[in-house]
Amino acid sequence: MSAELKQKLKQVLIAELNLEDITPEEIADDAPLFGDGLGLDSLDAVELVVLIQKHFGVEIKDMEEGRPALQSINSLAAFIEAKHSQ
């Protein structure tokens, strides 16, 4: 997976979700995005789906795609790369 893509994902998350006091380096690639990890909630998930489409041109169409994709930076990056390669 592209380190560049993961870095951009982290930057987008921090900027667009207004994550204060956190830098991209502090977000672990495999940390859970929701709950105990990054601490995002369901509203952030809505925002995230919109952001992924806006910044990466990739649409999460249903929960079958959404559930595995929205786990961590790693899973999101893998999802975006897979979509781009289709």
């Binding site: 998930a45 809505v46 929960m63 929205l70």
Partner: peptide, 14 residues
């Protein structure tokens, strides 16, 4: 359920 059903709702609306 997962993320309070938020993504499912967004998907339905889309």
């Amino acid at each position: 359920g997962f993320l309070g059903g938020a993504v499912e709702m967004l998907t339905a609306l889309k």
